[in-house]
Design a protein around this nucleic acid. Structure first.
Lengths: 218, 218
DNA sequence: TTTAAATACGAACATACGTTTTTATCTTGC
DNA sequence: GCAAGATAAAAACGTATGTTCGTATTTAAA
């Protein structure tokens, strides 16, 4: 045979990305074979190459697009919010909601970092750092304004991010808690953890060169 | 050739486990070939099978031993500590120290869950849940004693665990902060996050069947 | 000292992999 | 309606994979 009736490049690529995301999430990048991916899309393995350049490029693209959208949406969310406290609340809500909604993208963006070739790896780590810097900036503002207290805004930011991101490993919609309840608990934890009160240790050492992204590899 | 002079089963197995841990951490389970593993150990691929039964079994064993030791050590650590506040502090210190010391085991125990066959997967998830229950119990005690306040001890425990575990993705010994400083920051965040004060929401719904472990798969 | 078990080599197995190439058909723009 | 480009099939490529097997040598037990 040859070209199938009704075939359409844009639609097929979308199918590939969707199936790829699902399979990589479920099995891992290395464990997903292109034949399996092709079969999910309903085409032959070789035909994938009419839409992607390599398997590695598919992975990189999935992660990159996700990270860029994450940053874009955060920026739009924080745009209209003023003051460190409200910004922190907005950040928490945004982060949790996005991570619940895109748990697969989030998971592979973290766990498949080590499957990225060095150049691609570096690009993603840079995007991740950019996102992290948004939260650090909010914390810094809050500390400067005297509404937050923490010994180290960078470490606090990493701690908060890890905590919030963890939600997408266990949250199930329709489960015991609603999304809003989860957000409420986390907001409480973070707010109080940063609450300013009398005898908190102040900065224990001069401000940071931020640590890399998060992955082992390389 | 045949058996090498000076060869020793116990020592070789130890080499295999050590090299396996390193390679799986760096490249992932699927990406580590047995030939590569064997070469690191200094033997031929086929000879691995004098020491392990399958590749899968090596992975399972690495993770299982790690989880069991984690739980054992935690229990020994908490044994001599009385009162929820001190227990929480001890937990935080133990968890962070252990996770810094064993960052490779920790990482693969999380990220390679999906590479485990169902039976092995279930066993690890159960071990993980057992560990989580230790922290939940401390929080429950604290809430009962009126020294902690949180809307949901299970969610709080997951949040705290995710935050603390996150440390091993960025902490570098000899870096800007010492281990003790990191522990201090995290202890502060958690303590204040759980601090009891007037207008905290109390439990928002009846107590939990705890969510699974953490992995996507299956 | 003899013997059995442990350990490693080296070759082989079947299978699976990512990717390329060729060819045929369909779709689209003129 | 025709030409050009897009899309898919099908087969093949070389290589790599986890695992098994037979054999040789060393170690440890009797």
């Amino acid at each position: 045979m040859a070209r199938t009736a009704g075939s359409n490049g844009t639609r097929t690529l979308e199918s590939i990305r969707k199936a790829g995301l699902r399979l990589i999430y479920r099995q891992g990048y290395e464990a997903m074979s292109l034949r399996q991916l092709a079969s999910e899309v309903g085409i032959q393995a070789g035909s994938l190459y009419n839409h992607i350049s390599t398997k590695q490029d598919l992975l990189f693209d999935l992660i990159r697009v996700h990270m860029e959208e994450l940053i874009d949406r955060l920026d739009k969310t924080l745009e209209g919010v003023a003051g460190p406290s409200d910004k922190l609340d907005a950040f928490i809500r945004f982060h949790v909601e996005y991570h619940i909604a895109r748990k697969r993208e989030v998971f592979i963006s973290y766990s498949e970092l080590r499957s990225l070739e060095p150049k691609n790896y570096d690009a993603i780590v840079e995007l991740r750092a950019r996102y992290e810097r948004r939260l650090i900036a909010v914390l810094d503002d809050g500390v400067a304004a005297g509404v937050f207290a923490t010994a180290d805004t960078t470490v606090a930011a990493f701690g908060i991010l890890a905590m919030l991101t963890g939600v997408c490993t266990w949250f199930k919609p329709g489960g015991r808690m609603t999304k809003d309840e989860v957000i409420a608990v986390y907001t409480g934890l973070v707010r109080d953890g940063l609450a300013r009160d009398a005898d908190k240790p102040k900065a224990i050492s001069p401000p940071p060169p931020p640590p890399a992204g998060g992955a082992p590899g390389a």
